[in-house]
Amino acid sequence: MKSIQTNISAYMTLVLFVVASLNANALTTKERNAKEDRIKGLVIFSMIKYIQWPEASEELVIGILSDNQEMINLFNEIASDRSSSNKKIVIKSFSTIGEATKHSDILFIPNESSAEFEAYSSNGQKVLIITEKEGLCKRGSAINLITIDGKLRFEINKKVVEKSALKISSKLTEMGIEV
Rank of each mutant, 00 (worst) to 15 (best):
K167F: 02
V127P: 11
L152V: 01
K126H: 15
T173W: 03
Q125T: 15
L172F: 00
S84F: 04
S141Y: 00
L65P: 07
S84I: 11
E178M: 10
I148K: 15
N144L: 08
V90H: 04
F75M: 14
F45D: 10
K92V: 08
T6F: 01
K30P: 06
V90P: 09
L22F: 14
I129L: 06
L166N: 00
S121T: 04
K92T: 10
I78H: 11
C137S: 15
P54W: 09
G63P: 10
F17V: 11
S122Q: 04
D67I: 06
I129F: 02
Q69D: 14
I177N: 09
I130T: 03
Q125P: 12
K158S: 12
K49Y: 00
N23E: 11
N111E: 08
D81W: 03
A100Q: 04
Y11K: 04
A20P: 01
F45Y: 15
V19Q: 15
I130M: 08
D105R: 13
I78M: 13
R32K: 07
S83I: 03
T28W: 02
M12L: 13
T131K: 04
V43S: 06
D37Y: 04
D105Y: 05
I146T: 09
S84K: 10
M71C: 09
R82V: 11
I62K: 09
I130D: 03
V161I: 15
S80R: 12
V61C: 11
